[in-house]
């Protein structure tokens, strides 16, 4: 049954600037599942994530979200995915709190969830400082924090461990596991070894 899958991809191919990035990928994603995409640099991990989200147009193949031909980057009722990309989407001139509040408001997140997540990442003491004062690792943690309070069920993570130290990597893996156990799904592009529950692994390139 196609309808049960959150993402259903059949024979996906993607060409960019006349160059084939990947071809004939077929897979599906259900709730409480995670997919880890592996591959060396330039193998098209990021391209695949961007195709699935709808930022890149797929060249051939079929891509269904919840059994329908919709894409997160076009769909306009509620967020379908929570996205952790290469860029932080953090405004340095606003405070950490203002940065987070904006997304909380457009995602309609409850304030209690917000405080809870802030505690998990131990970000309380940063809240009222300008975001430009944060280091690269702290900015990354701020993006992870934002990702984890997004109400979307599917997390898209592109190299989530960049700039993170060992301690924070463990926090990251624990929140990812928690997300999967509570019925969410994750697609993660990485070249590190992750131990997540219920994982499928795909290699590109």
């Amino acid at each position: 049954m196609i309808n049960k899958h959150i993402i259903y991809a059949q024979n996906l191919s993607f060409d960019r600037s006349g160059r084939n990035i990947f071809s004939s990928l077929s897979f599906s994603l259900d709730s409480s599942e995670s997919i880890i995409i592996k591959g060396k640099n330039g193998s098209g991990k990021t391209s695949l994530l961007r195709c699935l989200a709808g930022f890149y147009p797929i060249t051939r193949g079929k891509l269904l979200w919840y059994g329908e031909e919709i894409l997160p980057a076009y769909y306009s009722e509620k967020p379908l995915i929570s996205w952790l990309g290469h860029f932080d989407a953090i405004k340095g001139s606003l405070t950490v709190r203002e940065n987070l509040m904006f997304f909380m408001e457009i995602w309609s997140v409850n304030i209690n969830i917000f405080h809870e997540v802030v505690k998990v990442f131990s970000f309380e003491k940063f809240l009222d400082f300008p975001a430009s004062w944060l280091s690269a690792g702290e900015k990354r943690r701020l993006s992870l924090l934002r990702l984890s309070f997004c109400p979307a069920k599917v997390w898209f993570m592109d190299e989530p461990t960049t700039y993170l130290d060992m301690e924070n990597k463990e926090i990251l893996i624990s929140i990812m596991s928690k997300h999967i156990n509570s019925g969410g799904s994750i697609i993660c592009a990485t070249h590190e070894n992750f131990h997540l529950p219920n994982t499928k692994e795909y290699s590109l390139g």
């Binding site: 989200a53 930022f55 997160p72 980057a73 076009y74 769909y75 306009s76 009722e77 509620k78 967020p79 379908l80 995915i81 929570s82 996205w83 990309g85 290469h86 860029f87 932080d88 989407a89 953090i90 405004k91 997304f103 457009i106 995602w107 979307a152």
Partner: peptide, 15 residues
């Protein structure tokens, strides 16, 4: 566009 905010905003369900 450059810091990724626009991606996040469009994924939030705004056209």
């Amino acid at each position: 566009f450059e810091d990724g905010s626009l991606e996040q905003i469009v994924l939030s369900g705004m056209s």
